[in-house]
Design a protein around this nucleic acid. Structure first.
Length: 284
DNA sequence: CTAGGATCCTGTCAGC
DNA sequence: TGCTGACAGGATCCTA
């Protein structure tokens, strides 16, 4: 997904467009994508947009919370006086809606909110607001990078000592909010090889990694998330916000911005992984 | 408990 | 052109 910065981006946007507005009606296009009795949201007022890790929480006036998880390809698109979208980047941000990837539609005062999701891994789930903390995913969520202590992270890495560090930081029970982009970017920042055994990191390396995660995610949030729609360049061609700040992600074959060496792509923990073989040495 | 792989689903792209 | 396999910004489940 749609990692933490993208969810925070859509949270902030929705906060400005439809906080305190009434949801007139929700329409479900894909049963799998909506868990709970849909009638519960009709006629309620949105009283808060919160976020925990990569989960967006929409508190409603009747004591129900909609937990929205975008997973791999989810998108939230606000269509009101203007378009505002975040999540998996695609033409849906500017396309006619609803379309065949639309799974849920919320008709709201002043606009329509679309939940689009190509692969249907994402979902909207209704939970009584008071029970959100007991939800399995939410309950097991680790602190976000800025709330995480170096010692706590290192202790967790020791427990997973034989797994590659990249795979471990993708685990939301270890640290919340990091996904495939920011894992690669944070490891590049800290000059750590993604395949290093988690237990082999020194405390100063863990500190750098934590610092890297904070830096790359904060920078992304400040620029509106890496996937805040596609934008149009001065020459009329389409660009992706990712290219504005990614140092290694999807840059295989290109030059490392730090040392000029060629960025490589390998597989770690089943995920495509990008790194600089010179800055991020295997051994250390 | 950990580690690693399969799985959910749709779509696109490279290679034959 | 048509087919096939690989891959994809996530998380869970299963097996060893």
């Amino acid at each position: 997904m749609p990692e933490l910065p993208e969810v925070e981006t859509i949270r902030r946007g929705l906060d400005s467009f439809c906080l305190h507005k009434k949801i007139k009606q929700a329409k479900i296009y894909c049963e799998k994508s909506f868990i709970g009795p849909v009638e519960l949201v009709n006629g309620t007022e949105i009283i808060a947009f919160r976020r925990k890790g990569k989960a967006l929480l929409v508190d409603l006036s009747n004591g129900i919370t909609m937990m929205i998880h975008l997973r791999m390809t989810g998108q939230l698109i606000w269509d009101g006086k203007e378009r505002y979208a975040a999540g998996h980047p695609s033409e849906n941000f500017v396309a006619e809606l609803p379309n065949k990837q639309t799974r849920v539609e919320f008709e709201i005062e002043d606009g329509v909110l679309y939940f689009n999701d190509q692969r249907k891994f994402g979902f909207v789930k209704l939970i009584p607001t008071g029970e959100v903390e007991q939800d399995r995913f939410i309950a097991s969520l680790a602190p976000e990078p800025w709330d995480m202590k170096v010692e706590e992270l290192q202790a967790k890495l020791k427990r997973r000592k034989d797994s590659p560090i990249k795979a471990v930081i993708l685990d939301q029970k270890v640290i919340a909010g990091i996904g495939n982009i920011y894992a690669d970017e944070a490891l590049f920042f800290a000059k750590i090889h993604p395949g290093r055994k988690a237990g082999s990191l020194s405390s100063s390396e863990v500190a750098e990694l934590l610092k890297g995660a904070c830096e790359v995610m904060t920078a992304s949030i400040e620029s509106g998330g890496s996937t805040m729609a596609t934008y149009v360049r001065a020459d009329g061609t389409r660009g992706n916000y990712l290219e504005k700040f990614a140092q290694v992600f999807r840059r295989e074959g290109k030059e490392c911005p730090r040392c000029g060496a060629e960025i490589l792509k390998i597989k770690v923990g089943g995920r495509g992984t990008h790194f600089c073989p010179v800055c991020q040495k295997e051994g250390c």
